[in-house]
Design a protein around this nucleic acid. Sequence first.
DNA 1: AGCAGGGCGATC
DNA 2: GGACGATCGCCCTGCT
Length: 658
Amino acid sequence: MKYSIDIETVCGVKTCKGYNTVHQCPHDHALHHIKNKITKIGIYWRLKDNTEKFKSFDSINDFKLFFNDLPKENMELIGQNFKFDIKTLRAKGLFISKDLWSDDTRCMAIALSDKIPEKWLMFYNIKRNSLNKKLGKQIHRVAGKYSLKTLAPYHLNIEPFWENEDHSDEEYLFLDCKYTYNLESVLKRKLEEENTYEFYKDKLLKWEKMLYEAEYRGIRLDLNKMSELEIKYKNKEIDLLKQLDKELEKYNKLYAKKERQKLYEKYKNMYYNAVNKIKEELKEEKESKLKLKYKKLLRSALQKAPKTISFSSKSQVAWLFEECLGYDITYKKREKGKEIIKKGVGKEVINRLLLENKPYVKLYKEYSKTNKLNTSYFPSYKEKLVDDILYCSFNIGGTKTGRLSSSNPNLQQVPADLKEIFIAREGYKLITKDMSGIEPVLIAYLSEDHNLCNLLINGDNFHNYVTKFLVEYVNCDTSEVKKKFKAERDLCKVVDLSLFYGSGKNRLKTTSILHGFNWSDADCSFKIKLFKEKFMGAFKFKENLDKHLEKGLSVTNIMGRKLKIPDKDDVYMTGFNSLIQGSASDLVLESGARILEEKDLHPLLLVHDELVIEVPDNTQIKENEKKIEEKMTNYTLQSCHGVIPLQVEGNISNHWEK
DNA sequence: AGCAGGGCGATC
DNA sequence: GGACGATCGCCCTGCT
């Protein structure tokens, strides 16, 4: 028997100002399986004669009683983004076996290469906005292309539907369940029609279940270490700020003056505008009143006006560097194919100024980094922790390329310096393994490029190889490059892959400057020519791929995922990139799922080409490490030049290894 | 006051 | 003809 299930949740943190309400919680606690609170649970099914059955529950206990009484043999559960529901139910005491989870309409929509057109989504959002306008509040949030709110109207030919303000609407819950139930069969047919049903069922759904386990388990933080680091960086920030304020005192005064000037102008204009609106005959009596009013407003505004430069404001720092210190803060940027000159204090400008030995730049750079850690990492982690466990969400359909993404918090962008606070549970260790050099391997496998295949089959390192021929004078054994030409290799390492994906001489030049080399334009052009000749096969492959994608046709990646580029103008820059990065990501997902099938191995984090796995700290650990390596490399990448080997790197440790 | 959008930086 | 790409989240700013 098929059932579709849906739950409604709200913020469940009593001390939070969003407690028990939807949409107001600033931390999205409604989405946190431990910090949320279930308000309704709905279950929908159909009898043999097709009559609809629907039941809803206000409490988990009532639902539990009902659910436990249902016959489990041949039970099939369907959900929309069911990962969230099954996780939340489990956290509240109802464990549902993964085996009963038979379909996920969100995953189905992700696997379907036929996506909802952008235009359709636009119309949907216009409707949503006008509804919000009527309500006077942003009640209805953006519905993504994989949410039920857009999938159901699009695939089932029904009118868009909306929940009421408190999410407790019985009717809405019923529709949610019913549409999920109906979507399953429609999407199944569509997947079968385009031959992606197997990919969905055997791969994507399996991966989603693995992610569910990873999310449910969460990762432990070393709280002592964290507060130690937090204090360290707090003090560092205060220190740096003191230095900046001291050294730049006169500019602080200048800035305060400028801001005051701006306020004078602002309130002067407001005053004149107000005066102009008065009818001629009333002018005399009202004018003086207005003058007083705006004087008063100006006075209070002046009191609140900033007295020092805020170094976390890019525009203020830009003003300081350009107007006060006379630095050149321009940089080139491409927008819609055109090169434009922009101003800013981003990485590129800062690094150039550093090379020019401009004062204060180093100080500012350090301050920015510290400020970033203090404002966007520690507070976010602390707010999301449950005891010492941190939970994130993985989004399998979050990206255009097929890559995985992470949010709440995003554990795929943890700064290297903070990785040491991520630790194993008592009695466990963490094994960090990354599939180093996975992208060149996939490019070799898919394009069968002669040189690329051979160098990898020989066991040579891609970056070493590139360094050797890109830096003309290098003529040594490939294995010696890393030692003898470290700076050159570091430069090549950050730019070589991008050359496959379409980066050009400007990119090469900027990168060379960042690495302390000043390669000329001609030099860069020449090097790119060399690179293209060396890997002619790969570029030929890209050319053909682009032609194919530009026709609007789809390609299948290494794991069976179908990929289309909706806008043909995007193909040149994103087509090849998506195929390779999506394949790499799927390879890691598949590896994670295979690892989970083994006893006692718990994948926790997936970071594009890297897995962090929690394993028991016992005598089996070395064997387990071998097992993990085997799961990550046991793919046969057969090319016409031979089998291309996959390699993994990484260690067993108490914490997440850099 | 609250939202949208730009700029930026962390990761791969 | 020429262009690396993909995220998430924070801060600031300008608009209504």
